[in-house]
Design a protein around this nucleic acid. Sequence first.
RNA 1: GGCGUGGUAGCUCAGAUGGUUAGAGCGCACGACUCAUAAUCGUGAGGUCGGCGGUUCAAUUCCGCCCCACGCUACCA
Length: 683
Amino acid sequence: MQEKKPIIVTSALPYANGPLHLGHLAGAYLTADFFVRYLRLKGEDVVFICGSDEHGVPITIAAEKEGVNPQDIVDRYHEWNKDTFERMGISFDYYGRTSSKIHYETSQEIFKTLYDKGFFSTKTEEHFYDEDAQMFLPDRYVKGECPNCSYPEAYGDQCEKCGNSLHPTDLINPISALSGKAPLRKETQHWYMPLGKAQAKLEEWLDSREGWKSNVSGQVRSWLQEGLNDRAATRDLTWGVPVPLEDAEGKVLYVWFEAPIGYISATKEWALKRNKPEEWRKYWQNPDAKLYHFIGKDNIVFHCIMFPIILMEHGNYVLPENVPANEFLNLEGKKLSTSRGWAVWLHNYVDHFEADLLRYALGVTLPETKDSDFSWKDFQARVNNELVAVLGNFIHRTMSFTEKYADAKVPPLSNPKDVDLAVLEAITLQKEKVEAAFEQFKFREALQESMQLARIGNKYFSDTEPWKSKDSDIESCHNTLHVSAQVVAALSILFDPIIPSSMAKLRAQIGYDGAISWENIGTDLLKVGQKLQKAEILFTKIEDEQIQMELDKLEAQLNNNASDAESEKTIDYPNIKDPINFDDFMAMDLRVGIIKEVTEVPKSNKLLAFKVDIGIETRTIVSGIKKHVQIDRLIGQKVTVICNLAPRMIMGMESKGMILMAESPDGNLHFVTSEAAEGSLLS
RNA sequence: GGCGUGGUAGCUCAGAUGGUUAGAGCGCACGACUCAUAAUCGUGAGGUCGGCGGUUCAAUUCCGCCCCACGCUACCA
């Protein structure tokens, strides 16, 4: 017999600073688990790897907020998420974590190898340094005034008020979030990956890939067209994997460099646990092995560009066979948002419903080719109309009929008619369709074709009317029951990757206790005379009240978070600025203006060019407020203009002055208007 | 603005290397049946396949432009 090729399936490492929600499951875990369970049934040599991504600045920030160590945070979420995955039936062979010793060694070894090969380039730059804390400050740890909107609490990477991304050095009056003091600028050296140099090799490899989804290859092409820039592989931080070089005190590997290596280190740990410490090489360092990364679309660049380059430059590692990335899942028609409380938390879900129900309902509407939508009403409909009414009912009517009228034993098949044979053939036919769908990562289709067999069963059962033939033609009746029982048995394996715990229950009911394998799906899984156990209901209907409760819960979460946010905003009002004297104020020339003309600025989607009449003249002002206003209502709008602001070139136009806007707590901009005629002076 | 992905029945989504009446599930209407968790089975209504042009004997499927959604990216003083 030919040796099976080893297969590694990975699911994106969830970030260990929060619990898991529906979007996670739909993106990278459910599909991977379907695939892996299918492969196992096929008898493939597969290892399914995942784990917690435990480094990075957000975790250190979360730790600081709570006044605990980063390790405490990741310990908490690692265990929590691991448990949630188990309860959802996600069957990882190993769930590792990037704070483990083996992960440190593995990522350091890979870094060191690239270093020895001379792959990295170094850059020395000035970064902010906190003398009290004796450390360089991550972008997030520098606060200051936003150069764009003057919000005084902007972070060094982004201003949360205006949403602009920033560099720490852009900030006005920067302070350290640690000590509250002004940080020093100090030189620091970092190692960069010159991705551009590896681009040609990467493209050649990518061209050799087949069967990739269009959303994935399109996104990758888009990145490559823009050209790959150097990416830092190290950071000045204490929380992370230390850079394994002499002159790299206080530096760690950048989390995007080291996290995907977690797949490898987790596989090593898995092998060690099985007392076969070298076994991981069979998967990762074997040209025959096949690697599949299941991820969400936000992760495409890491798994299709950066990690392959790392593996390629290191050499001696497999590159992914395919990266079947999913799109995003919306919830009740709106984008998921953990910060706004718009999410279904999986640990909550499994407290109220069986994992299998969600596995099926979500599996049918996975965001495979485009963003898709999960709604509780749809969940209820899928469960009630499909799992209960089609699958559950077919199983139940077959079993209870057999129990009542055939002594609870599988009756013989004798002189089968065309209808009987056609259904037996359908078993194999559906098996092949499902198989083809799995192989192409078309999981929705796999589910639908699996359910199709149950539909065929129902139709057959109704068409052959065993409730009539039991009195008129017992042979025909027995044939119906025989064939239906075989369909039930086939379904118990066909559906095993999707709803494993229900199907295990079902197999116990029909007395099928042999090892299960995909190839066994056929027409004679059950022996004639096989005793069936008492039919027990596998799926029960979900009532409207249960769904309403979930919807209410969602609303409540949303309101909670909204009021949290509101109260934070209240506290968060920027402090009154430093005092100025009257002359400073009078130095400003503020006048009432009236908008005469509005034009869109070419090549910009935030800017509008205004002609504003300020009495003395009409001048051009360019302003970035397009998203906040309705263009067709602007003409005639009274505004306040600061007229003696130094003119400025914006997108090739000279902007003379500024239209004043008031920003409400929700971030919307509003005109500062006046009843006075245009040209009136403010003082 | 650039790049990418998508825009198909009321809803959720398939599909077509261009070619006879464009599909499924749900929902809806009507009918059948009663073994089954009022489940099942059948029939039907419902679509100018985002819009406008072009190529072609023929396009919803190819090409161009435009609109909308999502993602990446730029502009934002």
